[in-house]
C-alpha cells in the first residue's frame, strides 16, 4: 500500500472514529495490547513472542501486537491490567495456570476468571521429573527408594509457591510416602540450572526448559505427568503406569479483557486459529513436547471451570487456601 492510499484510508478511519459508526466485522484500529502473564524468558514468554512473530511475519493482523510482560504478583498484575483495561477490544493476554491459582490465593483481587473472554487455548505444556545423572538413578522406582531413604534431605526445586511445581511435588510426597523438601525459585530456567549444577536433587521442569541439559546428558527424565507417553520421550513411563491416577498440564491460552465485545472476541479467535494452524506453531509444538488441541468459546469456558475446581481442591488439601 502506498502512502497516499494509506493516508486516505486514515482519513476514512478518522471519519469512523468521529461518527462512532457501528462496526459490523471487528478490525483493530490501534496497536493491540498483548499482555504476557509471566516474566521475560520463561516458557509463556517464549511462546507469546513466537505467536507475535508468526502474526507479524505472515501479516495476519491489521495492527501490531505489542507484548508487555506483567508478571508482578504471580500474574495478579496482568489480571488487574485486563480487568481495568480502558479499551477492552484491544487488550488480550497470554496466560497459564496462575490464571486459576492466583485468584484463589489472592481473593483481594476480586477477579472472576469466567468473565474473561475465551479466545483460544494454544497448547498444554507437560511436566517431567528430572534428576542429575550423577545420582546414578535411572528409573522411577530407584528415585522413590532413594528419596525415601534421604527423607527431608532430598531437595526438589520448582517455580513459585503453591503453583504447578509444588502441586506436583506435594502429589509425589503424598502418593509415594516421600518427605522431599521443596525450594521455590522465580523461574523454570533457574531451576534447570541449579539441577544441572547439582544444587538441588530433582525438578519437575517442562521439557522445553530442560531440553538442553537432557541432550547433553546431564539430566535424566524419570517419569512424565501425562496421560500417555510423550512422543519425544517414548521410553519414559507416565506416572499412571506407576499405578497412580494423576496427570497435570499447564495451559497456554490467550484470553481477552472482561467485557470484550463478541465481534472482537470472534476476530481474535479467528486470528489465533490461524496462528495455531501455521507451520511454525505446529513445528514448535512437536519440538517442545506440547499437547492439547485448540479450544475456544464455550469449550474453553468449560475447561476453565473444571480446572478452577480442580485447583481449588488441590490447594485446599495442601492447606494453601482456606
Amino acid at each position: 500500500m502506498n502512502l497516499v492510499s494509506k493516508i486516505s484510508l486514515g482519513a476514512a478511519a478518522l471519519g469512523f472514529a468521529v461518527l462512532a459508526a457501528p462496526v459490523q466485522a471487528f478490525e483493530p484500529v490501534k496497536p493491540i495490547d498483548f499482555v504476557i502473564m509471566a516474566g521475560q524468558g520463561g516458557g509463556a514468554d517464549r511462546m507469546a513472542r513466537l505467536m507475535q512473530s508468526i502474526v507479524e511475519q505472515n501479516d495476519m493482523a491489521g495492527r501490531p501486537l505489542v507484548p508487555t510482560n506483567k508478571s508482578g504478583g504471580s500474574g495478579a498484575e496482568a489480571l488487574l491490567a485486563l480487568k481495568n483495561a480502558t479499551d477492552k477490544d484491544h487488550t488480550i493476554m497470554v496466560t497459564l495456570n496462575s490464571f486459576f491459582t492466583t485468584p484463589l490465593r489472592q481473593p483481594g483481587l476480586e477477579v472472576d476468571i469466567l468473565s474473561y473472554a475465551p479466545i483460544g487455548r494454544m497448547a498444554e505444556d507437560t511436566f517431567v521429573l528430572w534428576v542429575h545423572k550423577n545420582e546414578g538413578i535411572n528409573t522411577f522406582e530407584e528415585f522413590v527408594a532413594e528419596a525415601k531413604a534421604r527423607g527431608s534431605d532430598w531437595v526438589m526445586g520448582g517455580t513459585g509457591s503453591a503453583q504447578e511445581d509444588e502441586i506436583i511435588t506435594n502429589f509425589l510426597n503424598g502418593a509415594f510416602g516421600l518427605n522431599m523438601k521443596y525450594i521455590p525459585y522465580s523461574g523454570g530456567g533457574a531451576v534447570a540450572r541449579d539441577l544441572a549444577g547439582e544444587q538441588i536433587d530433582s525438578s519437575v521442569n517442562n521439557p522445553s526448559e530442560a531440553l538442553g541439559f537432557y541432550e547433553s546428558g546431564d539430566v535424566i527424565p524419570l517419569v512424565a505427568f501425562t496421560d500417555e507417553r510423550l512422543p519425544f520421550f517414548p521410553d519414559v513411563p507416565t506416572v499412571r503406569e506407576k499405578g497412580v491416577q494423576f496427570a497435570y498440564y499447564m495451559q497456554r491460552s490467550v484470553v481477552g479483557a472482561p467485557g470484550m465485545s463478541e465481534e472482537a472476541s470472534a476476530y481474535y479467535t479467528d486470528l489465533f486459529t490461524r496462528v495455531f494452524d501455521s507451520d511454525e506453531w505446529q513445528t514448535y509444538r512437536n519440538d517442545k513436547s506440547l499437547l492439547g488441541d485448540f479450544l475456544s468459546g464455550e469449550n474453553l469456558m468449560t475447561y476453565w471451570e473444571v480446572q478452577r475446581e480442580r485447583h481449588e481442591t488441590i490447594l485446599k488439601a495442601s492447606g494453601d487456601i482456606k
Binding site: G10, A13, A17, V29, K30, P31, V66
Partner: peptide
C-alpha cells in the same frame, strides 16, 4: 519502539496515524 503511550481523551485523533504507520 512499539511502546504505546496512553492517549487519554485524545485517542481518536491518533487512529488515522496508526492507519498510516502500521
Amino acid at each position: 519502539m512499539r511502546i504505546v503511550l496512553p492517549k487519554g481523551y485524545l485517542e481518536p485523533l491518533f487512529l488515522p496515524l496508526y492507519e498510516i504507520f502500521y
